[in-house]
């Protein structure tokens, strides 16, 4: 990776929502370039548009104007099949509210994206067990989500996000509903993945501990990129962060 390319490029993206008669401008022109293998944190107050931006990057929603490029392909140009393929193979999603399928066991949840990807049952099962092992849940593969704690469910979600070896992991406040220790474990796990597998991680968060592991932090306020900081610049401004966001 001598010459990392932009795996994600967000170009002048705006997003408006119509609420009845009024129009809400949620994103007001966002430009971003994210390189392969980077660990990016997106910080910003509640309502600043982080989730909205994530949905655009993940191909879950379309920008009002502007474009999102993944591997330099304009996502809005993709048809339904290619979009499904992108969601299945290229991107792993982790949500604040876990979004584990309640009627499936941990293992079935992890293997589902592999089934969609056309991987044979046995191979999917083996890989699923391997991933559950990675997140420390191997003994619980047959448990249903309601038998698992919040942190364990989120770990299942992490394992599921990894199922098809995605190039990008989009994690929208992955630690938002977890206690401090389990939150730390998830952050460590994500960092490990980015370091060992070269996965690009883009994570929205309110969690200051997330900053320490990030390569870059993107501060979003009111639908705009406020500033972008590299890790080495971070420690200087951390005092201010505590005041402003803590």
């Amino acid at each position: 990776m001598e010459n990392p390319t932009n795996i994600v490029r967000v170009s002048n993206v705006t997003k408006d929502f119509t609420m009845g008669k009024s129009m809400v401008h949620v994103l007001k022109g966002i430009d971003l370039e994210i390189k392969t293998g980077e660990y990016i944190s997106i910080m910003g107050p509640s309502g600043s548009g982080k989730t909205t931006l994530f949905n655009m990057i993940g191909g879950l929603d379309k920008p009002t104007t502007g474009s999102v490029f993944i591997d330099e392909i304009d996502v809005s140009q993709l048809d339904a099949y290619e979009l499904a393929w992108l969601r299945c193979r290229k991107i792993g999603y982790i949500f604040q509210t876990f979004n584990i399928i309640q009627v499936m066991t941990a293992l079935e949840n992890v293997t589902l994206p592999m089934i969609f990807a056309g991987i044979p049952d046995d191979a999917a099962r083996d890989k699923g067990m391997e991933l559950l092992d990675l997140v420390g849940l191997k003994p619980r593969f047959q448990h249903k989500p309601f038998e698992l704690s919040g942190g364990q469910q989120q770990r299942v979600a992490v394992a599921r996000a990894l199922a098809n070896d995605p190039a990008i992991i989009l994690a929208d406040e992955p630690t938002g509903n977890l206690d401090l220790t389990t939150g730390d474990e998830i952050i460590k796990l994500l960092k490990l993945l980015s370091r060992e597998k070269g996965v690009t991680i883009i994570s929205a968060t309110h969690d200051l501990k997330m900053l320490n592991v990030s390569d870059r932090v993107i501060w979003v306020t009111d639908g705009r990129v406020d500033r972008i900081e590299n890790r080495d610049e971070l420690s200087i401004s951390l005092g201010k962060i505590d005041e402003k966001w803590g």
Partner: peptide
Amino acid sequence: GTMKCLGALD
């Protein structure tokens, strides 16, 4: 919604 995020078609 989750299934669709994992790549399920309509």
